[in-house]
Computed example of a mutant assay.
Amino acid sequence: MVLKLKGVIKTGEQFEELRSLCGTPSVRAANKVISQLDRHCREFISKSPFLTLATSDSKGKCDVSPRGDAPGFVTVLDDHHLFIPERLGNKRLDSAGNILGNPGVGVLFMIPGLGETLRVNGQAFICRDRELLEQNAVNGRSPLFGIVVKAEECYIHCAKAFIRSGLWNPESWSSKELLPSAPQMLADHMNLPNMSAEQVAEGLNEGYRNRLY
């Protein structure tokens, strides 16, 4: 089945059509981008317990992956480089594999309760520096590797998306009974024989208890 939609913009030549539709950015928006991790970026990163990492492979296939730990888990190495430790995960290596084929990345840092976010775009590479890995050990376990990002663009992003979504507002949250069931989703998507949602839930909970690091 082919999806047929009207008004689709697909080529770079049509960018000016978008520009005429949306207008031009304000001086404030145009001038807010800096090329280094200044004291404001460093403070924001030191208080952030969560980020999303956007990557794409050499063919442009995209991926975005969450990373989280205690506030300040990302180390700012200097004015242009930061280090993201790679904790235990699903072993798919989606982000790392993409970086090896295409080093361009985008990082979005978040702080709970703060609507504004920090965006850092740049070039990344895989790092196994032993001293750096040992510095990022938790519960006596060092990460096997980390991701170093050379910052090329850094800027604060406004809070409109968080305000509209009510993400940090508990009153807007659904009750737990109405939330999607991750174990059921996994069981249905994997479609493996003799693998029930209850068994998936047990495996998830065991991993959350014993295999965070």
Rank of each mutant, 00 (worst) to 15 (best):
M1L: 10
M1W: 03
M1V: 08
V2A: 11
Q14P: 11
E16F: 09
R19H: 09
G23V: 04
V27E: 15
V27K: 15
A29K: 08
I34A: 01
S35D: 15
L37F: 05
D38A: 04
R42P: 02
R42A: 05
E43A: 14
E43N: 12
F44I: 07
I45K: 04
K47S: 12
P49F: 04
L51A: 06
T52N: 08
L53F: 15
T55V: 11
S56F: 02
S58L: 07
C62E: 07
C62L: 13
C62N: 05
D63A: 15
S65L: 03
P66A: 05
R67A: 01
G68E: 02
D69Q: 07
A70P: 00
G72E: 07
V74Y: 03
V74S: 04
T75H: 02
D78A: 01
D78Y: 03
H80R: 09
H81I: 01
F83D: 00
P85G: 03
E86H: 10
L88T: 13
L88F: 10
G89E: 02
N90T: 08
R92H: 09
D94N: 11
G97Q: 02
L100R: 09
G101L: 09
P103Q: 11
G104V: 12
G104W: 11
V105M: 04
V105P: 00
V107S: 01
E116W: 05
F125P: 00
C127M: 06
C127N: 14
D129P: 03
E131L: 14
E131F: 11
L133A: 08
L133C: 10
N136T: 03
V138C: 04
R141W: 08
P143Q: 07
G146T: 00
I147C: 07
K150T: 12
Y155C: 05
I156G: 01
I156H: 05
H157R: 00
G166Q: 06
W168Q: 01
P170T: 00
P170K: 10
E171V: 07
S172L: 12
W173D: 00
L178S: 15
P180Q: 10
S181F: 07
L186E: 08
D188A: 15
H189D: 13
M190H: 05
P193W: 08
S196W: 01
S196H: 02
Q199S: 14
E202A: 13
G203R: 12
G203M: 14
G207H: 08
L212H: 00
Y213L: 10
Y213I: 04
